[in-house]
Structure formats: structure tokens, C-alpha cells
């Protein structure tokens, strides 16, 4: 049963990482244009000098 003292924090940590990733994605407005983002990945233009 001692293994629980490792496993529970680990599982909480992993879930927490997922939650933080979700909150970060939302704060940086990544859910504002879902269909645009889905299509942008298919664009053929090669950007030599992406914006910094």
C-alpha cells in the first residue's frame, strides 16, 4: 500500500499538468477560431521569416 503515496501524487500531478495546459491554451485565445486553426495547418505558404 506504500506505493499509493507515490502513485496518488503522480496521478494528481499529471492531471494538474493537463489542467494547466488547458488553462494556458484558453488564456492565449487558442479556442477563438477552431476551424481556422484546423485549416491553417494545411496551408502551403512557407514562412521564411516568422514573426518573433
Amino acid at each position: 500500500m506504500e506505493i499509493l503515496s507515490i502513485l496518488i501524487p503522480v496521478s494528481l500531478l499529471l492531471g494538474g499538468v493537463g489542467l494547466l495546459a488547458f488553462i494556458w491554451a484558453m488564456k492565449t485565445k487558442q479556442f477563438d477560431d477552431p476551424s481556422g486553426d484546423a485549416n491553417r495547418i494545411l496551408m502551403k505558404d512557407w514562412d521564411d521569416k516568422p514573426k518573433q
Binding site: N39, R40, I41, L42
Partner: peptide, 11 residues
């Protein structure tokens, strides 16, 4: 409606 539209318009 599509990826080509995005690049044409933005270009």
C-alpha cells in the same frame, strides 16, 4: 471556407 482562402486573403 478553406486553407487556400486564408492564404489568398491574408496575402
Amino acid at each position: 471556407h478553406c486553407a487556400a482562402c486564408i492564404s489568398t486573403v491574408e496575402g
